[in-house]
Design a protein around this nucleic acid. Structure first.
Length: 1006
RNA sequence: GCGGGUGUGGUGAAAUUGGUAGACACGCUAGACUUAGGAUCUAGUGCCGCGAGGCUUGGGGGUUCGAGUCCCUCCACCCGCACCA
């Protein structure tokens, strides 16, 4: 075996690395997981055994967890699920000979820390630091093999300096549609100088046209305005939720039912200047390169839907008696002759211009209503049709008929052109709208349209449509586009639902923009025009320390209040900060070279580690983080900073671990007579009684009688015979899961939970059965539901190895399931049982050097095969089962042989690393078990040569018969048909067919 | 509303390619050992039935010698929807 230092870091070999050898921890010989885990955690730390080198001849493998936001609540048992899975895979890959990068860090900027700061006055940096320390402690507790020397935090100035740097690369770039990649803005300027923008249409303003001479006449400000509309990171306008009462901008999830979540104040949309990323230019590449990724189909489908590519046409309608025109996007140009009205988004900028005088009041009233509506409400409200007529008419481009123009909330300004052509006979929403407002409907589907429901199917022929009549929908689509192009009124067009990503937040706790406004023109701090000293630039690029976190005036972020920071000698700094996804869009690159001060990561590091081979995290990031990261990676690739254009090759989604809530049922007794004293003391009713009462198997007076039988106090307080004079209610209340064992309430603990419960009357199941049973329900794990289980508690009680294995044993990694602490006993018992193969409580180590038997080797090699394959396909629950089967078999065989047990200790290392380490060393090996090779199985121990076949008659299995796997069908047929059970089931009938599937089953058909 | 996911014993689940449904555990029942048991071990445990046997993978229908698995249809629950991260 090579010296241990070979496997350790070659950045620097830590002192003591070579001392990693047999440590003679002295436990008595039962499975003392507390001592074992404590000692090995220390040994791992002392020797930096999990440090990873960038410089090795070994093949690389990059395994990444979605890094957590360090919330104040700490980790609950649901969070580590993915981390355990990736840790198992990382250890497995390492034992398979790979150089494995497996880092961890923190997504440390975010709203909750800022909110907390507002409430308590504590600086987010301080609380974040505290939360991170807690997270680290919890993570360390579980025994992960992270290389912590590579930790990143997005809120660290040394980190976000590079987030800002990447933002500036995007600011200094434009998207070249001909080359289909991002390029430096200088290349665009030289194109403008030579030929204007005829060949490079402006993505921010398709109508913008200028030639080289005109460009030359533009002022500096005009030029920068034009360039801004090409930049990948650009400044534009968008609406945000504005709350006047709180004086602040609110996030979507801070707005509930049209009012602010805090305080319930009214909110409305406010238009503000904000930064955006031109992700729409990447739409096509983001769709097409999904094919190269090993992600679940569901995840790819979600991204495809999010990007929402649709083929269709743009059609321009001229307004009657006006210069204005309305351009609509439609996926159904074939229905052009079925257009009965146009609908424009109510917030569209020129609604006011086209509205007729007599409709003005109505339109404005409607616009006001829409301002209070969230996008989701607007999309999902289908029963209630709303809208307003503008009084304007457009001219149909082909048949020249006048078409009324409406506004309605179901058309969104951000999608397509913000206007649609409505075809009631072919679209459900248009149909409902036309019916509701009594707009006459043109039928272009003949008998296919019944007048009651729109005909939205894509089968059939178009009718009543001039030159399109009689054509199939497909043919009509092509011909309609041709006609529109010929008449100059339209063109075919690919539309994406994807919108440019809003990149501004009116907050404090985020990356500041390295942008300064010189006479209201934004400049990047790194541009030569910004004449600040390097020191000043550094100061203004960094988030200033503040005392107060209250928002700035007019919806500006809190930074607007920091005079010393916001004002520079050349102009005012941008006061917005970047959103949460800024730092997380590229963090996987930083782990490759985390301490680099001159680049975000060196070329050597990024070209060695390349993309993440395995990324594990939740599905909730399906379209946010995962899409933005992909775009950033593509942009960095285009600009030549990295040599790959996808960040995450394989993605595994972990399911949620839900909470298992427990309920007690409080009996609330209100005397009907107002003058009587209400009954104040708490009474709790056990679950079965609650169920009986709820199902009306128990009357009010019977319930009171039960309570009275149970308690003297109650007897004095309520008169049971007068059940009628009370109003009863049984109220389910969450009870902390730590006060419950399974579903049985720990009554003393419950009484001590709250002062007011000290003397509570607790009515158990019955006179005989004195247990109080709680109700149970599966819900999301959250503090308010008292169902949070802290991994620290589980680790303290059962050990990290048990915890790790149990989380895996719960079920498939990608499925959501409720946590049940009770079930952990089985896994703990298994580890103890495995331990007893090596140690006897009295005599200590019982491992012998005797050669193993065939049966023992069979058990071992089947397990090597199965667990290896299961790890490869992320089926960790079945791997754990296999370990149980193996240990059960070896226990039955009374096997204590080194030949078997040494390999078993290595096998279990990914799952139970502490125990594996202990066993490995107690068997006399030096060095960490992680440096051992994952064992290979021998074919001869895993192949069987006979098979017990189920023999079925007419598909129903009736008997089991054993045959050699290479047996001839004729022999099998003869023996099967001679079998007495089969003869009985044949009932004398002739077999019609004899089905024999080798290695599977036999079926006789009569 | 749109998109995605999941439905199998009392519970978590297994069945990798259409081939013995319920592996492995939890829980429960009975027993052994023990001063004791929240330790350990043994046996049983999908449902109905004394039994022979029948039924059973959310409901209904279909394809097949054979369906948890494929197809159609209906239902229930969970997640995401662009400023939570």
């Amino acid at each position: 075996m090579p010296p241990l230092s070979y496997f350790c870091s070659d950045f620097h070999i830590p002192p003591g690395a070579n001392d990693f050898r047999l440590k003679t921890f002295d436990y008595n010989m039962e499975y003392n997981f507390r001592e074992i885990e404590k000692n090995w955690k220390q040994a791992w730390k002392d020797t930096d055994i999990y440090k990873v080198s960038n410089d090795t001849s070994k093949p690389k493998f990059y395994i990444l967890d979605m890094f957590p936001y360090p919330s104040g609540a700490g980790l609950h048992v649901g969070h580590p699920l993915g981390y355990i899975a990736s840790d198992i895979y990382a250890r497995y890959k390492r034992m398979k000979g790979f150089n494995v990068l497996h880092p961890m860090g923190y997504d440390a900027f975010g709203l909750p820390a800022e909110q907390y700061a507002l409430e308590t006055g504590q600086h987010p940096a301080v609380t974040t630091e505290k939360n991170i320390a807690r997270y680290r402690e919890q993570l360390d507790n579980i025994g992960f093999c992270y290389d912590w020397s590579r930790e990143v935090r997005t809120s660290d100035p040394k980190y976000y300096k590079w987030t800002q740097w990447i933002f500036l690369q995007l600011f200094h770039s434009w998207y070249d549609r001909q080359e289909n990649k991002a390029r430096p803005i200088a290349t665009l300027i030289s194109i403008f100088e030579q030929e204007g923008n005829a060949e490079t249409p402006c993505p921010g303003n398709e109508a913008l046209r200028f030639d080289a001479d005109t460009w030359a006449t533009y002022s500096e400000k005009e030029k920068r305005d034009v360039l801004m509309q090409y930049r990948i990171a650009y400044l534009s306008h968008a609406e945000v939720w504005w709350c006047e009462a709180l004086g602040t901008v609110l996030a979507n999830d801070e707005v509930v039912n049209g009012v602010s979540e805090r305080g319930g104040h009214p909110v409305e949309k406010k238009r503000m200047r904000q930064w955006f990323l031109r992700i729409t230019e990447y739409a096509e590449r983001l769709i097409s390169s999904l094919d190269t990724l090993d992600w679940s189909d569901a995840m790819k489908e979600m991204q495809r839907n999010w990007i929402g590519k649709s083929n269709g046409a743009e059609v321009t309608f001229h307004l009657q008696d006006s210069e204005k025109e309305i351009t609509v996007f439609t996926t159904r140009p074939d229905t052009i002759f079925g257009v009965d009205f146009l609908v424009v988004a109510p917030e569209h900028e020129w609604v006011a211009d086209i509205t007729a005088a007599e409709q003005k009041a109505e339109v404005e009233k409607y616009q006001q209503y829409v301002k209070s509506r969230s996008e989701r409400e607007r999309m999902s409200e289908v029963k209630q049709v709303t809208g307003a007529f503008t009084g304007a008419y457009a001219i149909h481009p082909l048949n020249k008929k006048p078409i009324p123009v409406w506004i309605a909330e179901y058309v969104l300004a951000g999608y397509g052109t913000g206007a649609i052509m409505a075809v009631p006979s072919g679209d459900d929403r248009d149909h409902a709208f036309a019916k509701h407002f009594n707009i006459p409907i043109t039928n272009i589907f003949g008998e296919l349209y019944n007048g009651e429901e729109a005909y939205s199917s894509k089968e059939g022929k178009i009718q009543e449509s001039d030159f399109l009549s009689g054509l199939s929908i497909k043919e009509a689509t092509l011909k309609a586009i041709d006609a529109l192009v010929a008449s100059g009124a339209g063109k075919s067009k690919v539309n994406y639902r994807l919108r440019d990503a809003g990149f501004s937040r009116q907050r404090y706790w985020g990356e500041p923009f390295p942008i300064v406004y010189v006479d209201d023109v934004p400049y990047a701090l790194d541009e030569p025009e910004v004449t600040l000293s390097p020191k000043e630039k550094e100061k203004h690029a960094q988030l200033p320390l503040v005392e107060k976190y209250t928002p700035g005036p007019e919806g500006q972020g809190p930074l607007a209040n920091v005079d010393d920071w916001v004002n520079t000698s050349v102009g005012r700094m941008e006061t917005n900060t970047m959103p949460g996804y800024a730092g997380s869009s590229w963090y996987f690159l930083r782990y490759m070279d985390p301490h680099n001060d001159s680049e975000f990561a060196s070329k050597e590091a990024t070209s060695y580690w390349r993309e993440v081979d395995l990324y594990i995290g939740g599905t909730e990031h399906a379209v946010g983080h995962l899409l933005y990261s992909r775009m950033w990676t593509k942009a960095l690739y285009d600009l030549g900073f990295i040599s790959f254009d996808e960040p995450f090759k394989k993605l595994v989604n972990q399911g949620m671990i839900q909470g298992s809530s427990r309920f007690v049922y409080r009996l609330v007794i209100k005397p009907k007579n107002q003058n009587k004293q209400p009954i104040e003391f708490p009474i709790f009713i056990s679950w079965t009684i609650y169920e009986n009462y709820r199902n009306k198997r128990l009357s009010d007076s019977e319930l009171l009688e039960l309570v009275n039988q149970h308690s003297i106090e109650a007897h004095y307080a309520i008169a049971p015979d007068k059940g009628d004079s009370y109003e009863l209610a049984l109220v389910p209340m969450h009870v902390d899961v730590s006060l419950v064992e399974g579903v049985v309430l720990k009554i003393d603990a419950f009484r001590n939970w709250r002062e007011e419960y000290k003397k509570a009357i607790i009515v158990p199941e019955g006179i005989q059965d004195i247990k109080y049973i709680c109700g149970a329900e599966v819900e999301k794990m959250s503090k308010s539901k008292y169902n949070v289980v802290n991994p620290d508690d589980i680790v303290a009680q059962y050990g990290a190895d048990t915890f790790r294995m149990y989380e895996m044993f719960l079920g498939p990694i990608d499925v959501s399931k409720p946590w049940d602490t009770k079930g952990i006993e089985g896994v703990h018992r298994f580890l103890k049982k495995m331990w007893r193969l090596y140690f006897d409580e009295q005599t200590g180590l019982v491992v012998t050097e005797e050669p193993a038997t065939e049966a023992e080797l069979k058990a071992l090699h089947k397990t090597i095969k199965k667990t290896g394959e299961d790890i490869e396909r992320f089926s960790f629950n079945t791997a754990v089962s296999q370990f149980m089967i193996c240990v059960n078999e070896l226990s039955t065989l009374n096997c204590h042989k080194r030949e078997v047990l040494e390999k078993l200790a290595i096998l279990i290392c990914p799952f139970a690393p502490h125990m594996a380490e202990e066993l490995w060393n107690k068997l006399g090996n030096s060095g960490s078990v992680i440096t051992a090779s994952f064992p290979a199985y021998e074919e001869r121990y895993v192949t069987e040569n006979t098979k017990k076949y189920p023999v079925a008659v007419n598909g129903k299995p009736r008997v089991e018969m054993e045959f050699a796997l290479d047996a001839e069908q004729s022999l099998i047929e003869k023996e099967v048909l001679a079998d007495p059970t089969i003869i009985k089931w044949l009932e004398g009938k002739e077999p019609k067919k004899f089905i024999y599937v080798k290695g599977k089953m036999i079926n006789v058909v009569v």
